[in-house]
Simulated assay, not measured.
Amino acid sequence: MKVMGIHHDSVVDGEGLRTVIFFAGCPHHCFGCHNPESWNLKNGKEMSVQEIMDEVLSNPLTDITFSGGEPFCQAKEVKELARELKKLNKNIWMYTGYTIEQLKSSEDKHVGELLEYCDVLVDGPFIIEKRDITLPFRGSSNQRIIKLK
């Protein structure tokens, strides 16, 4: 997987204390994106599931957030990581520029399988005209927090 970075102890990327994995690659290119260097898949560092697990487990008391970039750009690989994290009973939040409707209608089976491991989905592109810093856990009012589990 191509990973931009892993940050521990976040309190702004989902409920509770979280380890956030920022994946590389994003087709959305939202104007005003807070992480535009993540758009290019080549900007990420290649990491295996085990390397990411080792980093995540170095801080075992946190739950997990997948962000980006766009985690669904690497759905096949990211679902393997999600599967291993769920074996450890980790709660997984996922940020995506896609809507849940787009994800559910995807013809890529890995997208649906990755979605199955997600507890909470924050969906929709960031829209700068709808930016609202008072909203918890999202950047613009069009984005939804959807509890899947």
Rank of each mutant, 00 (worst) to 15 (best):
P60L: 13
L135A: 07
G5L: 07
N40W: 05
R144K: 15
K42W: 01
H8K: 15
F137M: 12
E15P: 11
F31L: 14
V3H: 00
E129L: 09
P36T: 02
S10T: 12
N91A: 12
P60V: 11
Y98F: 15
K147T: 14
Y117C: 04
F137L: 14
R18P: 00
I21K: 01
L114C: 08
L85R: 01
G112Q: 07
G112N: 13
T96L: 05
D119V: 07
E77M: 04
T134F: 15
C118N: 07
L88V: 08
P71H: 00
Y95G: 01
K109E: 14
V20I: 15
F72R: 01
F23R: 06
G69I: 03
V11P: 10
M53W: 07
V49D: 09
F31G: 10
L103H: 04
C73W: 02
E77K: 04
I146K: 10
L115M: 07
P27G: 08
S140R: 06
K2V: 10
K147V: 13
F126A: 03
N40T: 06
H29C: 13
P125Q: 07
M4A: 06
D108G: 13
M94S: 09
I133C: 13
H29F: 14
Y98G: 04
G124N: 04
I127Y: 02
T99P: 12
V3E: 01
L41V: 07
L85N: 01
G14Q: 04
E37K: 12
P71S: 02
I100E: 14
T96G: 04
G16V: 12
K90N: 09
L115A: 03
K87Y: 12
Q143S: 03
C26M: 09
L114R: 03
K79R: 15
V20F: 05
S140D: 08
R83V: 05
W39C: 10
Q143C: 05
K76I: 09
R131L: 10
K45G: 06
P60Q: 13
W39Q: 11
K130S: 08
D132L: 10
V56I: 15
A82I: 01
N59M: 12
L85D: 02
S140A: 09
Q74K: 03
Q143Y: 03
K2H: 14
V11K: 12
C73F: 06
G124R: 01
N43H: 04
S67K: 01
I100P: 05
L103Q: 02
V120R: 09
E37C: 08
L61W: 14
H7S: 13
D54P: 14
P136W: 00
Q74G: 00
Y117N: 04
V120H: 11
E46L: 13
W39N: 07
H34N: 07
L41E: 04
S106G: 08
I92R: 02
I64L: 04
V111C: 08
I64Y: 01
S48D: 06
E51F: 09
V56Q: 03
N59K: 13
M94F: 06
V120G: 08
P125H: 03
K76E: 14
H7D: 08
I100R: 15
I52W: 03
C30Y: 06
R131M: 13
T19F: 10
V56R: 04
E80G: 01
I64N: 01
